[in-house]
């Protein structure tokens, strides 16, 4: 898994490639937490993400809660079919703004 962060004026884009699973979730969380401290508006670009496991979903949930607390916005874009389905079945699609 690799994480790239593109910092714009008032939003950050987090580009994730590979897999977010039990092994990589902690790295993913660290990267996300660093972004969340500096930005209120975050975009997750999952176009190169193969899949996300429940460990990754936990990071997404914590991120959403954190953004909600400071009234920012969180958006997921370019999720593939597998990832989209995971968001769907776990009900995350109703919590997180997925385009």
């Amino acid at each position: 898994m690799t994480v790239d962060i593109i910092k714009n004026e008032n939003e950050a884009v987090i580009l994730v490639a590979g897999r977010i699973d039990t092994a990589t979730a902690p790295d993913f969380e660290n990267a996300v937490n660093a972004v969340l401290q500096a930005f209120d508006n975050v975009i997750f670009d999952f176009k190169d993400l193969d899949y996300i496991s429940s460990a990754g979903l936990r990071v997404m949930l914590r991120s959403q809660k954190s953004i909600n607390a400071k009234f920012g916005t969180l958006k997921v874009i370019n999720a593939n079919e597998t990832v989209a389905e995971i968001f769907e079945v776990t009900g995350f699609s109703s919590i997180i703004d997925i385009e």
Partner: peptide
Amino acid sequence: DPDVTLSADEREVGGLGIFL
């Protein structure tokens, strides 16, 4: 199973894996 209809702030972080 976790209640997937809850809002983000109400959701717990656990129980997702096996549900998935």
